[in-house]
């Protein structure tokens, strides 16, 4: 054995040790580090030993192959045979056309069950679970009263009976004073970004802006949810709310327009 062969042999031997270490690491406990490193070590030793083998020990053999270009004559024969076959088939042109139509129909029929994948569109994209008179609840289902929120704070709210509903999620914000269309300083916007549907989860009280952390669309709370900057193409829909007797917040109806990102059927 030459020195280089001995080195390569040592690599293979080290790899065997690595594999054995892995078995020990696995048997003695759930350690990502030891399990991974022992196997990685075994693989690295194998790789190094094989590299040494082809670089040092195998002769630097070079072989020559020819790039083939395929003969014109067989292509010609192909054309002739195709022509012969086509002529036979085309003799009954009606059959050929019917066959094509039948195949098409079969293919379409076989695709029809894909329709089972999803329900009819209906109005699901146009409405949420908010109704006229829906009381405002938090994610845990508790009702929101008009003194519950501090000025300049916000809360994620849902219609009563649909706490956690993804499409109905709403940002309820308490402004320092009563603004246009707000109820006792409360103002509510859909929490689903009109750009790509992420939750518009950040409120900057000073600027009165809602910010979507996904693509940084910014909406103006004081101006009907208008887009201030970012890629959103339309304003955040506002939920009409009022204070019910007893001080509970409730909706005066669903959002006046579809919430969330745009789609073809939306006007």
């Amino acid at each position: 054995m030459s020195g280089k062969e001995r080195l390569v042999a040592a690599g293979f031997a080290a790899s065997i040790v690595g594999a054995a270490l892995f078995v020990v690491a696995y048997a003695t406990g759930n350690s990502r580090l030891l399990e991974g490193l022992s196997l990685a070590f075994a693989a690295a030793c194998l790789s190094a030993a094989l590299t040494g083998w082809f670089a040092w020990i195998l002769p630097d053999d070079q072989v020559v192959d020819e790039y083939e270009t395929w003969s014109e004559s067989s292509r010609h024969a192909q054309d002739v045979n195709l022509h012969v076959g086509t002529r036979e088939i085309a003799r009954s042109g009606v059959l050929l056309r019917l066959f094509a139509v039948a195949c098409g129909c079969f293919g379409v029929a076989a695709l029809v069950p894909l329709r089972s994948l999803g329900p009819e569109l209906g109005t699901s994209l146009f409405s949420t679970k908010w109704r006229r008179g829906s009381r405002v609840v938090r994610a845990d289902g508790t009702l929101v009263r008009k003194d519950d929120l501090n000025v300049n704070s916000f809360e994620t709210v849902f219609p009563e009976g649909a706490a956690g509903d993804a499409r109905s999620q709403t940002m309820l914000i308490r402004l320092p004073e009563d603004a246009d269309g707000s109820a006792a300083g409360y103002i509510a916007y859909s929490k689903v970004c009109t750009h790509a549907g992420c939750p518009v989860a950040l409120y900057r009280a000073q600027a009165r802006q809602l910010l979507c952390p996904c693509h940084q669309s910014v909406f103006d709370v004081a101006d009907n949810g208008r887009v201030v900057s970012g890629p959103a193409d339309h304003a955040l829909p506002r939920l009409p709310i009022e204070i019910a007797p007893g001080g509970y917040l409730r909706a005066r109806g669903d959002f006046p327009e579809p919430i969330g990102p745009g789609f073809w059927e939306r006007a």
Binding site: L39, A40, A44, S47, T51
Partner: peptide
């Protein structure tokens, strides 16, 4: 040569995973 590369890929991914 190719087997050496294979084990190198295995070693790198396993080491990263660890």
């Amino acid at each position: 040569k190719s087997l050496a590369l294979m084990f190198a890929v295995v070693a790198v991914t396993f080491a990263l995973g660890a």
